[in-house]
Design a binder for these strands. Sequence first.
RNA 1: CGGGGCGUGGUGUAACGGCUAACAUGCCUCUUUUGGGAAGAGGUGACUCCGGGUUCGAAUCCCGGCGCCCCGACCA
Length: 426
Amino acid sequence: MKQSQLFTKTRHEAPKDEVAKNAQLLIRAGYVNKEMAGVYDFLPLGLRTLNKIVGIIREEMNAIGGVELSLTALQDKKIWEATDRWDDKKVDIWFKTKLQNGTDLGLAITHEEPLTQLMKDHIRSFRDLPRAVYQFQTKFRNEVRAKSGIMRGREFLMKDLYAFSRDVAERDAFYEKAQQAYVNVFNRLGIGDKTYMTFASGGLFSKYSHEFQTLTEAGEDTIYVYEGAEKNGQGQIKIAVNKEVLNDEVLTDLGIKRADLVEKKAVEVGNIFKLGTRFSEALGLVYQDEKGKSIPVEMSSYGMGPGRLMGTIVELMADEKGLVWPEAVAPFAVHLVALFDKNGKVSEAADVLYEKLTARGIEVLYDDRDATAGEKFSDSDLIGIPLRYVISEKTLAKNGSEGDAGSVEVKNRATGKVEIRPISSL
RNA sequence: CGGGGCGUGGUGUAACGGCUAACAUGCCUCUUUUGGGAAGAGGUGACUCCGGGUUCGAAUCCCGGCGCCCCGACCA
């Protein structure tokens, strides 16, 4: 994409009402726009990054047998009454509205109910199980207090996967596969070394749930990291215990000693639950086994917030100059920056290079604007694309091995490392 | 929902109850410039969040509302 076509502008200063680093930088760089507290638009650069994160999650969900669909945000109250989650006294974060004829509607806070209802039409026999379906869908939650930029909003994208199993053993087997899939996602996003599978309250459904918590001071949770697991090295799922459930019983259950736990601040980037038959029983999702007996389906749910992950990556990797994206989630792979030249030779060469890279499928943001070098460099640092290719009269004068093609300066945003490479080698 | 703070051009700030609401930045025009947010000149842009009130006079004081941020509580 040519930067001259990108309508977003960068800013020197963040709005004074944004304190969170993620929101300050994402707004300054033109990735997001705040509509109101806890409600953010994703602008072209932000949407690209968000979609990269979504793409990685999608691949990992597909790899464990997940099948994607998309459920509605508008919800009929009936099924939520069936599970006793409609009453404001039970669930106080609903956004509710009405049809013109007076029928109550809610904006979905989650999708256990509608999906369980839907699956009744498709799961009848033990032969129809197991199933795993998921979606990327906007959730609406009327939080009393939005905070931390895009990390905790009232409208946000969520990946939610729901697994339907014949029995506890089958469900547990999937649960373990999903844990690994989650670890894979965090590794690919570059935050794996700071993300812990954290024992947390199972709420109404089971003794424990597992939160995936990424260490950052910007987080709102306090967790106790198990150092023993870290010492076990690579490949091991790192574990922690949420402060909310830390007690002797939990330590005994997990077989770990209090002395091996270290307190840290973290942000919850994913949460997985064993739901049991709470929803299948309430809504009548049953299957017939080999003997024709009706059995409620065992369910489990797997949530993950792409937007919150994006904010977490910003918090973890940004530096004083701006955003720093890992390759896997950067909006573009290369930021091609053409500096001013008097005779048009530079922009001519940059145009050619842009076409060449783009034709090869490399995602390039091409800064073809009429701006000074300093301004372009500052913007480039702020936007945080992993590789910056600078092309100028100076670099064109440096010949490659062919003797005529000229060079570009390649700078790595994260490491700051600079090298001069012949254009012919790119 | 309790506590605290804050609402002034697009953005960041200033202005004793008193002159045409100032400065920086952004944006526009021209000239010069061009490897780390360039320089000069000229311009554009604000019912000072909304509604009441006090006063000769309100951005400023008072009351009410709305919005935003932070701390806490909450967070299937």
